[in-house]
Structure formats: structure tokens, C-alpha cells
Design a protein around this nucleic acid. Structure first.
Lengths: 372, 372
DNA sequence: AAGCTATATGTAATCGATTACAAGCAGCCT
DNA sequence: AGGCTGCTTGTAATCGATTACATATAGCTT
């Protein structure tokens, strides 16, 4: 038996389960063949196998073929951990997502995954809103031994988490997408939220609305702030009233949209149109109104923000500001990968702003005769 | 300077950027301190540092404190790659998701992430429907050097991908969730799809419907098949007609629901109720009908499947079969982790079936006077 | 023929932890 | 005193690849 010649007793091959070592003891197969085993099977050194795999052009054709044949026959699969240790990188990126259950992020993730996987990176996701995701826990994800880079979709994380530039254990490159931490020195991919909000307001104005309300996101969120600011600016620019009671607090959720609808119903003087800072809130708003016997856009016009999948199939189809969600994720991944390639040289943070557009559908229409 | 006493020239500390080696050459800081550096700072061996970190009770209190202080002062963070290599595991699980953009999966993912992260596992996601995710590419994710286990949410993957039991490079433990490959020998977490479908049909029957149609998922999908089968069985059991033209083909998407609506409209004899195999199709169905001037449940009752977030806020609120999405993900993760802990001993595959329940809302009501 | 270059390959150090094994030491028992 | 036990700690092997450096060979130039 050829196997008996093998002096190293943990030689492994693809099909057999057991071998006999030099003492003829039946030993369990190590199971996973190593580069060593391939080298032996091909009659070359491990260095040559390694080169044949990662830089085929430097080995002769004959050797290359022998190596590939040995890989096939042994069923060898590279051990990524060992490679990563030696190369001091992980070929992985971590994505910090606030609330994975929110469908808004699923397309962003899809965009990230697409670009990252094509470039050979694994995508590791972490939900920052889970109870176990406390600061200490999250901190461990920011280690360069975990990932070569980070994409952060949560602007509500404590800045302190990221304040480690230049210190030991250095922070890997970070790119923010969608949300970001105001004033932080990181690259970001974002949309022009203020401009999007302004588009919504101008659209309503163009339809004839003069009394326009707004349902905003959670306090302290950059998206809330920028959309709110865009809303106010556009209202002011158009000479429309900015009335405190027409601004409703939400948190981007369906539920909070429904609550805003109740608040709207409770008003003496109601705005004839409402711009919601998220589609989910817009749907919740319209849905609640419908339960109370009101109809959109007959009784009030509604514009959303995001253009989630359901928007065009809502009743009525939702007029909204479309965010290129997939493209945002893809751009963030590309930016991060570029940044990782640039080495440790602290490149200045870049900001990429993607265009939004208004998807005019049926939930916004000219104000009814009852309106002012 | 104390630094000049250090003979190993790549000593590193937390704050300074540069050191001088034994030749007094200014060298770049290695940046990330290693366990070696901690050991030196604490005046102990690396073995002791390692023990203090991973099994604190075996080192004396004095030493432990010294080590922790050294960790703090050096800013040491463990290198997971090195640890994983030595321990021959990755502390990561891979989740194979069909179409990340589908919000249905986001809650499943959230459940997985929650359990996995609490147990110290990273979650790596792969979108199996991306163009780059060909069989060869996916194969590399099934390597045990990539992850300690796999959760597969895509039942349409080729079985061949998983047929490596006992061969070299062995497949790590696999758990299917939601979908699965018929006849494959893996553990699964699923719901009783047939029972769920039967609940929907019986609910409609209870409301008085005698003519019930069905919009099914993509052909060949196990969910499609089991729900279809449950539908047929319930119809037969109740003595209701099973008419070929009342069964519409869909693919779970909003769009396909809308198409089914057009098909329904084109019928001479229309069923008074339609059970859709997904909420997305139900929404698309209702939405399309609404565009054509029809109203649910006045003109037709609709029941969905899944209970996605928007369901209760749809117009009308959608009657649907609720799947515990978060719990499915959590159960899959728990099962996988248990399986990984059980070692390589091939435990028999287990099947966990989670209960579904009917969420009766407004989209299904007794048939109108016009109906038979 | 000597010397040089280019190509292909092998040897062994290296990445940074964990852990088997050995050993030191204090306390206790006989 | 000698031996035993239990508690700490250190030494060095190990995980499985990559890669710097050395070396061998062939082909070419002068």
C-alpha cells in the first residue's frame, strides 16, 4: 500500500476515512488536506503549490498542471484563516446596520454585498440595535483583525466608538452610508436629503397646495434634520406658512405614521398635504386615515421618502422621493474598497452624494374644493 | 529613555508613533500590539496572558490584574485570525439568502443575527441570486475554513453543492430554514406550510366563500408546493371546487400578484376569494384591482401569507397567515449552534416546525350579494 | 569558457495566537 | 526529611498558509 510509505502520520487524502500511521495504528483521517498534502501529491514544495494557486503565471505549465491535478485529487481547499493570518488581512468587511428588520436596509445591503462579493470580500453584518450590541460589544467589531473595513449605516452610534485614529490597534477604514455622525471625519455616501425634501414640497406646491405639513423622523437623526431643514427652507422660499402644529414627530416607522395621522385628524386647521420623511410613515399615515374613513388624495395629499418596493403598489400608489438604495450600498462598498487599497496613508475623507428623484404617483393631487 | 532598553525592535505601545531600534533607526510603529507586547509589559509569558484572557480563573489574581493593566496600557486587541487558526474554527456562520432585497428575509436575518451574535458568532451573508454567485463561487463559502456552520434560506440551490459529506474538506454543519431542498439530509426549521394554507382556506370557507382561487409561488419551490398542496387538500376536504383556471402562477413578488389580478379580472366566472401564497402577491393583487376600480373585500376577498410589516397597514389591512419570522431565524441559529457543538458525530437531522396562526383582518369578508 | 540574466523552484521564517507539557513552589501528611 | 498534591507559570510546538531569500538550471552574450 502506498499509504504505508508515508512517514508523516497525518497525511490525508480525499476518499479514505482511515489510515495507518508508522506504528500501524488506525488513525482518524485529519479530514481536511493541507497545502502540504497537495505538495506531496504533486511532488513539489508547498511554496510552489501556493504560487500555483495565487500567482499561476510564475510556475511552469507542467508544474501548474501537476499542482491542479493534485488539488483535484486531494480535494484540497485553501484554509483562509491561515492565509489571512499570514497576509494580515481578513478579506471581510463589517456592515453596522441599525435594525436589520427594517426593509429599507435590505436593498442597501444587497448593493453592498454585490460589490463586495465581486471584489472577493465577505460581508459580515451586525445589528446595532440588538440588546447585546452594547458599546463594548460593538467595539470588538471595529478591530482590524475582524475586518479590513467597515460600512456604517447607523448615525446614532457614539462617536467615541470611532475615535481611535492613529492609536494602537488602529481602526480600519470606515465609510458611512445613508446616515452618518455629524462632524465625523469619515467618508460618506449619501443623498441630498434637503434637496429631496425640497422636491417633495415644490411638487405639492406645484399641485396647488399652500398648507403643507411634515412628519419627521426621530430627533437627533441626521436624516431627520436634513429633511426637516430642506422642508423648512423650501416652504420659506415658496412663501408658504411654517406652522408648528403642522410638524409631527415620527420615527420613520409605520406605527409613527399612523400616530401622525391621528394628530392630523385632531387639528382644527389641517394642512391639505403632508410630506412624510419616510415611505413607511407615509403608508402608516394613509392607512390610519383610511381606517378613519378618510381618503388620500381626496382629503389630503401625501408624499413619502425612499420609494420602497411597496410604494408603487400602495393604495393609492405613493408619490415619493426615490433613493437609489442599491446604488448607495454599491457606492459605499466601492468607496470602502478603494480606501482599503489606498493603504494606511490617511486619505482625506470623500463625500459622495447620489441624486434623488421624485416619483410622482397618485397619493398627491391638487387640493380638493374644501381646502384653502 | 526606557524604550532604548528594549532589545526586540518591534516593541509597540499605545501612544507613540515611532521608536528607535537597536541601531537607533527610526522605525514605524508596528501599530497593533501583540500578545507578546502585553506579556512583556506585564512581566509574564504569553501563555499567561492568553490564559488571563480566555480562562481568567486559572491565573492568580495579582497576575490577572497585571495582565489586564498591561492590556489597557498597550491598547491590545486580540488577533482573531491567529486565534481561529490555532483553534481551527472561525466563530462565524454563513447565511445563504436568496435575494437580499426581499424584505421577507430581513426579519429572518435579524433573528439569526440576534442569536448568533449573543453566542459569539459573526454572521456572514451571501446573496445567492447575485450574478456573481455561481456554483463555483458559492462552493467556496461551504468550506469549513470560511465558517463553522451554514444557514441556508434558499431551497433552489443545486443539491450537488452540498454533497460532500465525509469527503475531504468536509462540509460544516448545515441548517435549512424557511425553504429547503426536498429529500436532503439536513436539519431544517420550517413552518407547516400546508397547515397554514389550510387555515387560510378554512377561514374563507367560514366566511361563506365557496369559490376560492389561489395564487402560488414559483414552480419547483418547496413553499409553493406545500402551500399549494395544503390549499388543494383543504378545498377537497371542504367539498369546494378545485378549478384549474382559479389557480394562478406567481413568484411571490408584488408584480406577480398584480398580474394574477389581471388574470382574475379576465375570467368569466371569478372566484369570490383568493388565497395568495405571499403577502407581497396579495398586496400586488389588491393594488392592481384597486387601479382597475375594484375594491377588496367588496369585490373579492384576499388572504395572504407571511404577515409582513406592511400587512396590518395595508388598505384594507391584510388578513394573512402569520409566520414567526424572527423566531424562525432564531431557531435556525440555535439549532446550528447546537449542531456545531455536537462535534463531527453525525447527529441525525432534526426538523423543527414552528406554528403559524391566522391574522384575521379586513381583506377577507363574507362574499357580496353578487357572488354565488 | 566565463559570466550574466531570467526563470523556476525549494528552504525556512513568519503571521499571532493557543495549549500540551514541564517545572517550580508552597503546603501538608506521614 | 521525603513525598505528594495542587496551584501557577513558563517553554516551545502548533495551527496552515505566504513569501523573502537562496539556489539551480538553461539560455545568451562576449
Amino acid at each position: 500500500m502506498i499509504w504505508d510509505d508515508i512517514s508523516v502520520n497525518h497525511f490525508s487524502a480525499s476518499i479514505k476515512y482511515f489510515f495507518r500511521d508508522s506504528n500501524n495504528i488506525r488513525t482518524l483521517d485529519r479530514k481536511t488536506p493541507r497545502i502540504q498534502d497537495v505538495a506531496r501529491a504533486a511532488g513539489v514544495s508547498t511554496a510552489t503549490v501556493s504560487r500555483a494557486i495565487s500567482n499561476p503565471s510564475v510556475v511552469s505549465e507542467a508544474t501548474r498542471n501537476a499542482v491542479f491535478e493534485a488539488i483535484r485529487s486531494t480535494g484540497y481547499q485553501i484554509n483562509l484563516t491561515a492565509r489571512n493570518l499570514r497576509q494580515r488581512r481578513t478579506r471581510a468587511i463589517v456592515v453596522l446596520v441599525p435594525n436589520l428588520g427594517n426593509p429599507f436596509f435590505s436593498h442597501i445591503l444587497a448593493g453592498i454585498e454585490q460589490v463586495a462579493a465581486s471584489a472577493g470580500f465577505s460581508v459580515l453584518i451586525v445589528d446595532t440595535k440588538q440588546p447585546h450590541a452594547n458599546e463594548g460589544q460593538l467595539f470588538t467589531y471595529l478591530s482590524s483583525s475582524r475586518a479590513d473595513g467597515l460600512i456604517v449605516l447607523d448615525g446614532s452610534l457614539p462617536v467615541a466608538l470611532f475615535e481611535r485614529r492613529g492609536t494602537a490597534g488602529g481602526l480600519p477604514p470606515v465609510v458611512f452610508a445613508c446616515e452618518w455622525i455629524a462632524g465625523s471625519p469619515f467618508s460618506k455616501v449619501m443623498i441630498d436629503n434637503a434637496a429631496g425634501a425640497a422636491m417633495a414640497i415644490r411638487h405639492l406646491h406645484g399641485l396647488g397646495h399652500r398648507c403643507i405639513g411634515h412628519v419627521s423622523g426621530p430627533r437627533g437623526n441626521v436624516l431627520t434634520d436634513t429633511r426637516l431643514q430642506g422642508t423648512r427652507a423650501a416652504l420659506a422660499e415658496l412663501g408658504l406658512p411654517v406652522r408648528r402644529e403642522w410638524f409631527f414627530d415620527g420615527d420613520f416607522s409605520l406605527q409613527s405614521g399612523a400616530e401622525a395621522a391621528r394628530a392630523w385628524l385632531a387639528l382644527d386647521e389641517r394642512p391639505t398635504a403632508v410630506f412624510c420623511a419616510s415611505d413607511q410613515m407615509a403608508c402608516g399615515f394613509i392607512s390610519q386615515l383610511s381606517m378613519e374613513g378618510y381618503t388620500v388624495p381626496r382629503d389630503v395629499s401625501v408624499v413619502g421618502f425612499d420609494d420602497i418596493d411597496i410604494a408603487r403598489h400602495f393604495i393609492p400608489p405613493l408619490t415619493t422621493v426615490r433613493q437609489p438604495r442599491n446604488a448607495i450600498g454599491a457606492a459605499a462598498a466601492r468607496l470602502l474598497i478603494a480606501q482599503m487599497g489606498a493603504g494606511t496613508a490617511d486619505a482625506p475623507p470623500v463625500e459622495e452624494v447620489l441624486a434623488v428623484e421624485l416619483a410622482a404617483r397618485r397619493s398627491a393631487a391638487p387640493p380638493g374644493p374644501a381646502a384653502g
